[in-house]
Amino acid sequence: MKLNDACPAFELPGTDGKIHTLASFDGKKLLCVIVSCNHCPYVVAYEERMVALAKARAADAVAFMAVNANDATRYPDDAMEPMTARAKDRGFPFPYVRDDSQAFVRALGARFTPEVFVFDADRTLRYHGRIDDNHRDPARVTSRDLENALAALVAGEAPATPETVAFGCSIKWK
């Protein structure tokens, strides 16, 4: 999808036992969707930053949702049960949902994990790409792309860099 496109509809089960839809996030100023998974080393490296950012922006009515669409037949670690264990173990303060049909993630046009899509109050896409420029070492990050985009959008401004190239593991398509 392109910048300013509308967020595709979804109805996805979460590790919290609930079904999550766009309406689940009504009232939130921003919705940050992170295409994620359990087994990718890039995601593992970013999980702590994802949690910290979600907690830091919760007071600004910024909602986060992680979605795992990887083919769980080939990658059993990405099935709902291991996802539930991961969410509990890492203390995810956001829904971690399973897109078994891969329809939502395909509609997003996602390719990698992690890959970020930030939607504004009208649920149009305002930022797409990477979390930052160094997954391996947070101390060596020079461009906090997601953090900067969220700060701009919370302030009612357009992100200076609304699109970056995401990198990570490829989504495991069926």
Binding site: R106, G109, R111, F112, F167, S170, I171, K172, W173
Partner: peptide, 22 residues
Amino acid sequence: YCDCALFASREFAAGSCDKSGP
């Protein structure tokens, strides 16, 4: 393309495939 997105088929690299997946 491979799972790390390093190697790709020549057809994919030439842009004939949808980058979002098969």
